[in-house]
């Protein structure tokens, strides 16, 4: 590897080599589009950790989809051969098992090599409550400018004729053990373009929390990263 090489170009050149895993016809038909799309994905990912996660995703996807394309190809060849023999059936099974074995080995290695610094999104209020145990935090107050910046970066979507904000959709349905449709009030205390912080209070005794919510790249979607109980309910019992 030459020093000073753009890592983006290096990943793409590795990806072009990986395309040889696909059947030739598929490569001829879609190879260029696959590379263009992978390039777009890499360009849209700004952090090193993000590119690492993306590359893992693309690698796994390539192994699975290449195995599938070979299987479909082989199936078509056998279908065209009216004298499908037991030997052909056996070869097909061997090919599929080989592909699955390679995929299983690679996935295992990638899972073992997962960087400790990656933070999974928060998905459960019970987890938040457990993490809050023993803490003592003041609830964050609203900052109008931060709130305006969040709304300006946010993207909306329309479903069944009603327009929602992605930020609101995440707040109302992004936490698994809060029933959908539970009312909430929230403040936005700060926003740096990637992380927004504030306080969220759910109705129905689900509590009040200082939250951190992360904006995902691309379409303005969000994931809760953390919640810590604040104010009067600094630690509350788990939801039954």
């Amino acid at each position: 590897m030459a020093s000073g090489e753009n890592p983006h170009e290096l990943l793409l050149s590795i990806y072009k080599k990986l395309l040889y895993l696909y059947p030739k016809q598929y490569r001829d038909d879609y190879g260029e589009q696959l590379v263009l799309t992978a390039n777009d994905m890499l360009e849209d990912t700004s952090t090193k950790a993000g590119r690492r996660a993306l590359w893992t995703h693309i690698l796994f996807d390539t192994l699975v989809s290449a195995t599938k394309e070979h299987y479909v190809n082989f199936d078509a060849i056998i279908a065209a051969d009216n004298q499908a023999t037991a030997k052909n059936q056996q070869s097909k099974k061997r090919l599929l098992m080989f592909g699955l074995a390679v995929t299983a080995v690679v996935v295992s290695l990638l899972l073992l090599a997962q960087p400790a610094s990656s933070i999974p999104p928060l998905s459960s209020l019970n987890t938040a409550r457990t993490l809050s145990q023993g803490t003592k935090n003041a609830c964050l107050t609203n900052d109008n400018q931060a709130a305006e910046r969040v709304h300006s970066d946010d993207a909306g979507f329309t479903y069944a004729g009603i327009t929602y904000s992605n930020f609101e959709a995440t707040a109302s349905s992004g936490i698994a053990d809060v029933p959908a449709g539970t009312n909430y009030q929230l403040t936005i205390a700060s926003y740096d373009g990637k992380l927004a912080k504030g306080t969220i209070t759910y109705d129905g005794n689900y509590g009040t929390y200082d939250y951190i919510i992360k904006k995902l790249p691309g379409a303005g979607n969000w994931n809760f990263v953390s919640m810590v109980a604040c104010g009067d309910n600094m630690w509350v019992p788990a939801i039954k």
């Binding site: 696959l34 799309t37 994905m41 796994f60 996807d61 699975v64 989809s65 992605n166 349905s173």
Partner: peptide
């Protein structure tokens, strides 16, 4: 809402 994340191989 972020749940379906396609990669090039599956997409094409």
């Amino acid at each position: 809402l972020g749940k379906v994340k396609l990669a090039p191989g599956t997409l094409y």
